[in-house]
Amino acid sequence: MNTPRMDASGQDDLDRRLRRAFRGIDTREGFEARLMARLEAEAAFHPQPDLSAAKIRADAEYRSARGQLERWVKALLRMLVLDSVAAAAALVAATLALLEVGTRLSASLPSVSGMTGLLEIIAGPGLVFGVLLALSPLLATRLTGSLRSG
């Protein structure tokens, strides 16, 4: 492509003339006042930005608080799962061991056979409590799920 070339003084002269040519092309006086009037008119149809900003801040705070609560519940759940499984297993094992000991004792020592009924009374609720304890993480998960959906 052929491009005309000029010397530095010609370039300076052209630059000066172009700057001068565009001088004075600007918005009319009162641009900002007209804009403010338009924004005031807009306010009738759109929510006030300061109110929107307050709502956005409140939403952000709510999300942050909820996130914190969820993190706390998750951490608690992790602990609860391990603890409850261990406790339930120990309780069931202890109950079964107690029943076994009771059965053997009553077989070899007829004089303590009256205690076997007592052991069975203790072992029944112990087993039920152990099962409930083992199920507690499941219940807690459901509770967290309803918290999230709420």
Partner: peptide, 21 residues
Amino acid sequence: LHRARARLAASAGVVQSSEAI
């Protein structure tokens, strides 16, 4: 900008010389 200046210079009568780029 370079091309525009060159065109304007040519039209505005401030061109000193021409050269292929």
